[in-house]
């Protein structure tokens, strides 16, 4: 019994120490990453928006203040849809000014990293944007998000989006 208590206490101490070191206060920080894509002249392709370090992320809204931007002389957007449980509830696309706004969420669920014994995934795709090439071969369009209006976890608490990694579509 003494051995059990000693080992149990050691294990508990280690866990408590780690939690103490990590801290239990504050708001989670995550970032967004937009993928890079190559598409043929006149062809269609996909670009994806991922949440990096998603702590049970449930909603993501870009707009009315923020916007997803692209160069309308190079590509046009034909569809916006959700991935990995996320659904796009509403979206507006302006292929003249090169702007997309959307509100998306995961009804009845949320996303978090995938931890495998093999290789983990800390970056989960949540939005897929279908684009069509309208530019000439060799041209490219930068893809960016100006700001995030809403990003919350499964409790409705804000997730602070600390950075946005821009993407790019290149016409081959």
């Amino acid at each position: 019994m003494k051995k059990i208590l000693c080992r149990g206490a050691s294990l508990g101490f280690c866990v408590a120490l780690l939690i103490f070191l990590g801290g239990c206060e504050g708001t989670f920080q995550a970032s967004l990453a937009i993928s890079h894509s190559f598409i043929s002249v006149g062809g269609t392709g996909k670009v994806r928006i991922a949440i990096v370090n998603p702590p049970d992320a449930k909603t993501l809204q870009i707009g009315p203040t923020g916007k997803f931007t692209f160069n309308p002389a190079i590509i046009s957007v034909t569809a916006v849809k959700g991935l990995n449980g996320f659904q796009v509830f509403a979206s507006t696309t302006n292929n003249v000014t090169g702007e997309v706004r959307f509100a998306a969420g995961f009804p009845g669920g949320s996303i978090r990293p995938i931890m495998n014994m093999g290789v983990s995934n800390v970056q989960i795709d949540v939005i897929e944007i279908i684009v069509q090439a309208v530019g000439v071969s060799g041209s490219s369009s930068l893809l960016n998000i100006t700001s995030v209006d809403v990003c919350t976890d499964r409790n409705g608490k804000d997730i602070i989006v600390t950075g946005i990694q821009a993407g790019e579509v290149t016409i081959q």
Partner: peptide, 16 residues
């Protein structure tokens, strides 16, 4: 386990 991804993803897991 320490997992990283290029866009800044970082997960640290301690399994006992």
């Amino acid at each position: 386990i320490i997992s990283v991804q290029p866009a800044g993803g970082l997960l640290h897991a301690i399994l006992i």
